[in-house]
Design a protein around this nucleic acid. Structure first.
Length: 357
DNA sequence: GGGAGGTTTCCTGATT
DNA sequence: GAATCAGGAAACCTCC
């Protein structure tokens, strides 16, 4: 990423330690500045309350940013696009869609769901339009304009609310970002990655000093991509290890994936009541009878996963949970009268409350 | 510690 | 053939 300002515009104390090529990104008049140096070193001018890497609150690109947006959905503002996770790419897509008043029922957001920030930075206009013929051009221009015009303020490492585990697990994380914290042994192999690359746990007790209990299983990070191969290799797995031992599976919720009072039907209800997500991600088919439909099923699943500290969530799993909720009475069968789509449609049940306020 | 409730994960088979 | 639906089974978490 090219520097946008000259060294002369930086504070005096930086002149002794920086050259023009050292400057990574810099805001015009920030109260606090962190400048990224080559090889990932950082120079902190001063510490302070830097909230955002991409300052969307005060620039010409996004003059009317909605302050009320859930901060979780703005984690992409905390880092340079090169370091966005796949989820943050999606968050940005939907943020732009909202900002541009795009018809999200036609937006092909799911076509971007496996794109990392690094990949996004290297995508051409054609790449965008292939994924979304209707809005690809607009998304491309918004991204390029943002990359060119937006002010960047890189926060201290501790400001990152979501480590780049997505990128890391997919092999796209640029290790140099963390070089100032890492030793060679830290990055020696995939299985030895330190905890900081992973999602923070809801329950900090999860990260005790007991290695056996403190780690989110590494395979959690790659389950999505392994899913199909696991399906086809079940018999092969059965062959390995001793058949007499009880088979240790990866089933069930993982440590830190607590409900914390956030039930699935409540999450769905709240999305439907929020105009930021309804009708963009899911929408009412018939509010009177409580029938709704997923518009961006994978996006909703990923949001649910983030809420539950479970990055491996998919619509397949979400829908299974929905069916369980249906059997529990929170959701109900959708009337099969031809009025509603047969897919992606659900209906609130007797035990669900507050959806029709 | 045990049970209930609520998922999460994996899976097979059916349907669209 | 892919996506989705349906549901069994097992695991595991939180809460009481």
């Amino acid at each position: 990423m090219a520097a946008t300002l000259t060294l002369q515009s930086l504070p005096d104390q930086l002149h002794e330690v920086l050259t023009d090529t050292d400057v990574y990104m810099y805001a015009d008049s920030p109260p606090h500045v962190t400048v990224k140096l080559e090889e990932g070193k950082r120079y902190n001018c001063c510490e302070g309350d830097i909230r955002s890497y991409i300052d969307i609150s005060n620039n010409t690109m996004f003059p009317s940013v909605k302050k009320e947006v859930d901060e979780d959905l703005l984690s992409w503002t905390f880092r340079h696009p090169e370091h966005w996770t796949t989820q943050e790419v999606l968050d940005w897509i939907y943020w732009v869609a909202d900002y541009q008043n795009m018809d999200c029922t036609r937006l092909k957001g799911e076509a971007f769901q496996n794109i990392t920030g690094v990949q996004l930075c290297h995508m051409t206009l054609e790449d965008f339009t292939i994924r979304d013929p209707e809005f690809g051009t607009c998304l491309f221009e918004m991204f390029k304009n943002m990359s060119r015009d937006v002010k960047f303020i890189e926060p201290p490492p501790s400001e990152s609310i979501y480590p780049d585990y997505h990128n890391y697990s997919e092999g796209h994380l640029e290790e140099k970002v963390y070089n100032e914290q890492s030793t060679d042994s830290d990055v020696a192999s995939d299985v030895e990655k330190p905890e900081r690359y992973r999602y923070p746990s809801v329950d900090s007790d999860v990260f005790s000093e007991d290695e056996n209990s403190s780690c989110v299983p590494d395979d959690t990070l790659v389950k999505l991509s392994r899913k199909k191969s696991l399906k086809s290799s079940k018999s092969a797995c059965d062959d390995c290890g001793t058949s007499d031992e009880p088979k240790k599976t990866n089933r069930g919720r993982k440590l830190g994936q607590a409900s914390k009072g956030n039930h699935l039907w409540e999450f769905i209800r709240d999305l439907l009541k929020d105009t930021k997500f309804n009708p963009h991600l899911l929408r009412w088919e018939d509010k009177e009878t409580g029938v709704f439909r997923f518009v961006q099923s994978e996006a909703v699943a990923q949001m649910w996963g983030r809420k539950k500290n479970n990055p491996g969530m998919t619509y397949e799993k979400l829908s299974r949970a929905m069916r369980f909720c249906r059997s529990a009475g929170y959701f109900a069968e959708v009337p099969k009268n031809g009025k509603f789509p047969k897919k992606l449609c659900f209906r609130f049940g007797k035990k669900a409350t507050g959806w029709n306020d």
